[in-house]
Design a protein around this nucleic acid. Structure first.
Lengths: 121, 121
DNA sequence: TAGCCCCAGTATCTAACGGATACCAGAATC
DNA sequence: GATTCTGGTATCCGTTAGATACTGGGGCTA
């Protein structure tokens, strides 16, 4: 036995959090919000190929987890600002560390994939 | 515009890698393999509630990305060892950093979720 | 010798999810 | 009066996650 039960429980919790961080859009949204508060369609335009539904879903998830605040201004047309919370800003460092690893090694991973697919294909 | 096109492309690549790291089982598998090489059903028992198919899928993905090696011993019964590659071992540090953040803040996230669900529900 | 287990998977099926498209209200603009 | 901008929701569909059942060869057991 390499891990205690307590560690395993912690692993599940960590895995749960990483599932949020690792989904397709979350990192992109957090990266953009690192620059400061941003409106819904502003984010949408910056990310480019995200649908309204997925941006809504992603932002709701981040809001639910306390990583982002949502501020509605009841103007016409409506204005909704999204901004990283303190917790969200604390997340930037470890995410950037992992992102740095990814940037450094993306070539090795792509090579490995090409090799694997070639060998199997 | 906060990010250049080159940065956006890098973000996509990073997001791609994070999707792999962030899926439900990958981190757990990598954590267990950090202890050394391990057999299929050994991993299965340690993780506990993972199905055979998902463990196979997860390990294939890690193998494809060059993070894990798969060694088959043609014995009866068959024996298959999985082991982190150098690239896989390099991944441990940033993953542990993020996992550390998750462990530190899991309570804050769960509190935020309870608050959010309570307010909406 | 029929029935069970172990091993590392594959095959099949379904529930959930991602994502595209269409629609909403209300004011301004053309 | 039609279109645009705002930040969404509703609906549909194809893909995927994940559970369940099965494979096959050897060994144990009753």
């Amino acid at each position: 036995m390499t891990l205690s039960h307590r560690d395993e429980t912690a692993c599940q919790a960590v895995s749960d959090v990483l599932s949020r961080v690792g989904d397709k859009w979350t990192v992109l949204v957090v990266e953009h919000l690192s620059e400061g508060p941003m409106r819904f369609n502003e984010l949408r335009r910056l990310i480019g190929n995200i649908s309204q539904k997925m941006l809504t879903t992603t932002l709701r998830g981040l809001e639910r987890d306390g990583l982002v605040t949502r501020t509605v201004y009841p103007t016409i047309p409506p204005r909704v600002d999204y901004e990283l919370t303190e917790l969200g800003r604390e997340l930037r460092a470890p995410v950037h560390a992992l992102a740095g690893w990814a940037r450094t090694n993306i070539q090795r991973i792509n090579d490995a994939r090409a090799r694997f697919d070639g060998a199997q294909g």
